[in-house]
Design a protein around this nucleic acid. Structure first.
Lengths: 210, 210
DNA sequence: GCTCAACCGCGCATAATTGCACAGTTGTAT
DNA sequence: ATACAACTGTGCAATTATGCGCGGTTGAGC
């Protein structure tokens, strides 16, 4: 079982750095000034990139907004899960660690994060292939964690890793979207419910005593 | 009285970033492995730059060594002094702050810093114009501080700011070189002597009571 | 002595970024 | 309505970084 990441050459790395620079600058300015009041000019100045460069990465401001929204919805599952699998022995502990991590992120989110998440679907509208890819990347990461658990004997084997992973990703994404749309959505208690649900469905070891 | 720094465009900034990346990587590798055992290949890998790029910045490894040596000898006087002039009201206080700053740097220096400083003169041999420029940049920065003191009335006016600045730069460079050559050189007590000397020669206010 | 790996230095074509200037749009002030 | 500032989106030439591969050197192993 190996992660299928293609080798990235320096051209690609430099390009990703520049893109990151733009996204980080945009996020900071959106936080400070609001999304509407932030211009592409301002982003380029803060990122210290040419406007010409901005347009080689993104077709318009909306595209950056969407990209930032997606990164909040999909939590960059792969690096997180690789880390959790490394540091936790059982699938149950990994799911625990994952919920802790997600709770930490929610504690840190601001209003602008909500706005960005609400904008994410528009990104998918302009580039529908992207949705499939991001969704399948996230599901793939969870599936690998569950498959490892099945090999260890502490995860349910009646269902495929893919369907279990899809359940996890789908549940989390829905809850996140609900929170973005409705500020009164009780995300932390819902995450605790999700923790119980996921462990009930996925884990076949007996729960550890409190 | 204004600092004469030409505007730097993004091309220049990107270039300087890359150059910095190379120098910082080199410094770290020199610290870890020693100067001799560090190859250009290793520096490029650590800096994540192409070897072709290394050669567009430096003709060979010796050039990086020399550059790092010079930066240790000449302490980037201009930003430091601008900061000191901003944060301290009198010339005496600025000289105090400068000596504190230099002492802090010496406390942090390692063996590799000594080796780099010893190598600095070789850099001047391969590019003699550079010595004049760096030396005059450092002297210029000190001269501006002293000229400001003369206008304020707390620095000696019988001598020009340039000659007083030359004395300061020359003394500090000599002491630094002595320390690089001889590890037993008592640099901290010498710096305290230099503090007294500079304030005796430059300042015309009465020393503040301890 | 020969072979090989590691490294050096460099020519050259390609990739990514940059700066510039143009045409167009929008909002504000007169 | 007109003028202007601020911003957007884009074509294009110049700059910087990159990858590649070549010829050369050096040291180690056989």
């Amino acid at each position: 079982m190996n992660t299928q990441t293609p080798p990235v050459d320096r051209h690609e790395r430099r390009k990703l750095e520049t893109r990151s620079r733009i996204e980080n600058a945009a996020y900071l300015l959106f936080s400070e000034n609001g999304i509407e009041a932030t211009s592409i000019e301002m982003i380029c100045e803060a990122a210290d990139v040419a406007r010409r460069t901005f347009y080689s990465h993104f077709p318009n401001k909306q595209a950056v907004i969407g990209e930032l929204g997606i990164s909040r919805l999909y939590s960059q599952a792969e690096p997180m899960l690789a880390m959790l699998m490394e540091g936790h022995a059982t699938t149950r502990q990994q799911l625990d660690g994952m919920i802790e991590y997600i709770e930490t992120r929610f504690a840190a989110y601001q209003e602008v994060d909500r706005q960005l998440m609400i904008s994410a679907p528009a990104r998918f509208t302009s580039d529908p292939q992207q949705q499939g890819k991001i969704s399948s990347d996230a599901i793939g990461a969870f599936a690998r964690m569950i498959a490892a658990g099945q090999e260890k004997g502490d995860a349910r084997t009646e269902c495929s890793p893919e369907i279990l992973a899809t359940m996890i990703v789908g549940t989390l994404t829905t809850m996140t979207t609900n929170w973005a749309i409705d500020p009164t959505y009780p995300i932390f208690s819902k995450l605790e419910e999700a923790r119980l649900l996921f462990q009930l469905i996925v884990c076949v070891d007996s729960p550890e005593p409190e």
